[in-house]
Write a protein that binds this DNA or RNA. Structure first.
Lengths: 240, 240
DNA sequence: CGGCCAATAATGTCTATACATTATACCGGA
DNA sequence: TCCGGTATAATGTATAGACATTATTGGCCG
């Protein structure tokens, strides 16, 4: 039982040296023929390992010049935004979603974002409250394109909140999220049962599948009750 | 000039069908021998395409049972947190970092997080203000492990703020970020030149390289002046 | 001396083949 | 009917070679 395939061993070898800093950005990786001799294998095998490192962004491969360790440039982070029900449950609290209003309507003229979202069809407008135990956690205002997600018209939102429902039903390919801190206004404060002016975390998100807009949502989290936590792997490697 | 390599054409073919929804989660992908005939190529080429789709999380490959479209489960998002200098410049404003204090000290006993960060060495404690034009944008409190980043002792922080400096100097592999909304206290309000109680975006981040802690930072952004914007590709595919 | 062009060294792609591994399907016996 | 073992169909890994592509190097020629 070989613990690792050979090409994986080669890959993890260099992965380790790069991540540990032993190989600094700009350092040269041996060329394929050298690695063939080092590991006693064929060029395809070496190439597979280096291709993996390259597509992971750890090295850059140049013809004629050989491969070098890439300089860390992608300072992007994977922000895990779990389903609210799952997250609330993980904290040992009981999750509940209360639908405040539900309306099917055409996009408002003069609102280019709504028109772009609706496409040729109607919009489903939803407003609801997320509860953790009996306390309000967030207020959600959502628009869904019925042209993109016709099934949404029949969805039973008493069971799943719309976000969870969409996550499961529609594979999304792209999203834009805006996160901001705002002081809560009086009307919202009443709904969330907090003091007017208390800090709230505002999460604005629009979602696409391919080039078609699916939904846009604004969630207003009670500041003292909610943190966005992102556990991040910068690189899909071996760090647990 | 072949626009695309054959294995890339096969990959993008299925990529497109999956992302467009034409191939739903659970749908079967033709087995390698069928694809060989379809595209008139060898098995290695087909395999390369399918491996790419698999490692991108678009399909699942099972021995004996063939490959199927994966169900979208990784609802993670790539949150782009650019360098503050870059971002401020992109908004057409002048960026400036003002170092308020700089201290080298051992970890405080009774603070396990500081002890874990410091390892065997000392801590570099930094506090500073980020300005956009002449207005304060954020207050930063940072601890850096000098055991992990000894060069940091000599860094010229007048040029680069510590975050940018570290980004460029140290490849990180993992980070944990906590984002929250808080009401600003009186002392901080004076530094940021805002009203006490105004909503601020708090970004707490710890960074690792391999298993070694590098730095932890808390940035407090002026709510009305700053949004975190995340432009997201759920899958490193072809959506622009 | 400067600019262009050919040789070269590296990666990129592809083929045909071989054997390993593994989950499933099928079949026979209790 | 259920249980277990074996055949099989699929992917996983690897080889050796061929040709394509491309950036650099160095030399030739004006």
């Amino acid at each position: 039982m070989t613990a690792l395939a050979l090409h994986e061993r080669i890959r993890t070898d260099f992965e380790g040296r790069i991540l540990s800093g032993a190989l600094q950005p700009g350092a040269r990786i041996p060329v394929e023929h050298e690695l063939m001799q080092l590991y006693g294998c064929s060029r395809m095998t070496v190439s597979k390992a280096l291709s993996a490192l390259s597509s992971a962004g750890l090295i850059e491969r140049n013809k004629r010049a050989g491969s070098v360790v890439a300089r860390p440039k992608v300072h992007s982070m994977i922000l895990d935004v779990p389903d609210l029900p799952v997250e609330v449950a993980a904290r040992g609290q009981a999750y509940r979603f209360q639908l405040l209003s539900r309306k099917v309507r055409p996009p408002v003229r003069g609102r280019p974002d709504e028109i772009a979202l609706a496409g040729a069809g109607q919009l489903l407008e939803l407003r609801g409250l997320h509860f953790a135990d009996t306390l309000p956690l967030a207020l959600e205002d959502r628009l869904v394109s019925l042209a993109a997600v016709p099934q949404m018209g029949d969805a039973d939102l008493a069971v799943d909140p719309p976000g969870s429902w969409l996550l499961r039903a529609v594979p999304w390919t792209e999203a834009e999220t805006k996160i901001a801190a705002v002081n809560c206004d009086a009307k919202t404060a009443r709904l969330l049962q907090i003091t007017p002016g208390a800090a709230c975390l505002s999460v604005d998100r629009s979602t696409w599948r391919a080039h078609e807009r699916i939904t846009s949502v604004r969630q207003l989290f009670v500041g003292i009750a909610y943190d966005l936590v992102a556990r991040i792997g910068h690189y899909g490697g071996s760090v647990p």
